[in-house]
C-alpha cells in the first residue's frame, strides 16, 4: 500500500493536474478570505470551498493512469487497492490544503464576531476551522468517489454529477458539511465557537462508505 500511495502521489504531483483545483481554491480564498474579516466567517468559507476542490482532486487522481497502465498496477496490487490509494492521495492533498487554508485564515482573519463587538478566541476558532475543513474534505472525497470511475465512467456524467452532488452536500440541511459550516457562521454572529466534531465523524463515516463502494466496484467495472 505504501508503494501504491507513493506511486499515486508521484503521478498527481508530476501530472500538474492538481493546478486547476488549486487555482479554484486560491481564487475562492481570495474572494472569501480577506484581511480584517471575521475569522469564523473566513473559516466557514474556506472549508466550504474545499469540498468541490477535493471532489475535483479525487477525479484527477482516479483518472490519472491511462487504462493500460492501470491494468498493470491493478494486476500487481488488486484493483481496489489501486483505487483506494488514488482516493487516499487526493484526500491527503485536500487535507494539506485544509491545513494551509486554516493557517491563512488564522493569519488574516479578525478575531471578533461579525458585529465586531465580541472577541472570538483565536485558538478555538482555528481548531473549529480546521475540523470543519477536514469534514468538508472528507465529504468532497465521498462525492468524488461516487461521481467518478468506476461508478460513473463517462466525463459527460461524472462532471455534472460531481457539480450537483457538491451543491447538494453543501446546501442540504441534513449534510454534515452544511452543519459544520453553518455552525461556524452562527458562531461568528453569537461569538460561541463550536468545534464541529460530530459533523466530522459523520463525514468520515460517509466518506468511508462511499470509498468502500467505489473500491468494491473497482474490479467490476473497468
Amino acid at each position: 500500500m505504501t508503494a501504491l500511495l507513493r506511486y499515486q502521489a508521484a503521478l498527481l504531483l508530476r501530472s500538474h493536474r492538481w493546478l486547476p483545483p488549486l487555482l479554484l481554491y486560491g481564487g475562492s480564498m481570495a474572494v472569501g478570505v480577506q484581511s480584517g474579516q471575521p475569522v469564523l466567517d473566513c473559516a466557514g468559507w474556506a472549508a466550504a470551498t474545499l469540498l468541490p476542490v477535493t471532489a475535483w482532486l479525487v477525479r484527477v487522481c482516479v483518472t490519472n493512469e491511462p487504462s493500460a497502465a492501470r491494468d498493470c498496477t491493478a494486476a500487481a496490487a488488486g484493483p481496489w487497492r489501486v483505487h483506494l490509494a488514488a482516493v487516499a492521495v487526493a484526500l491527503g492533498a485536500a487535507l494539506l490544503l485544509a491545513a494551509a487554508g486554516t493557517g491563512i485564515v488564522a493569519a488574516v482573519g479578525d478575531p471578533h464576531t461579525a458585529d465586531r463587538r465580541t472577541v472570538v478566541p483565536m485558538g478555538s476558532a482555528t481548531a473549529a476551522g480546521l475540523v470543519c475543513a477536514a469534514a468538508c474534505a472528507l465529504l468532497g472525497t465521498a462525492v468524488g468517489a461516487l461521481c467518478n470511475r468506476p461508478l460513473l465512467r463517462s466525463t459527460a456524467w461524472a462532471v455534472p454529477a460531481t457539480l450537483l452532488a457538491t451543491v447538494a452536500v453543501l446546501f442540504a440541511g441534513a449534510s454534515p458539511a452544511n452543519a459544520a459550516v453553518t455552525g461556524l457562521v452562527t458562531g461568528s454572529r453569537t461569538g460561541v465557537v463550536h468545534v464541529p466534531l460530530l459533523p466530522l465523524a459523520a463525514a468520515a463515516a460517509l466518506a468511508a462508505g462511499a470509498v468502500a463502494v467505489a473500491c468494491a466496484l473497482a474490479a467490476r467495472r473497468t
Binding site: 508503494a3 507513493r6 508521484a10 503521478l11 508530476r14 493512469e65 491511462p66 493500460a68 497502465a69 498493470c72
Partner: peptide
C-alpha cells in the same frame, strides 16, 4: 500476478526508470 497489455501507450508523467521503480 503481473499483467502485460498488448499496447502500452502510457502517457505517464515520469521517466521509464522511475515508472519501473515505482511498479
Amino acid at each position: 500476478t503481473a499483467y502485460v497489455p498488448e499496447r502500452f501507450p502510457a502517457a505517464l508523467p515520469m521517466t521509464a526508470g522511475a515508472y519501473l521503480t515505482h511498479l
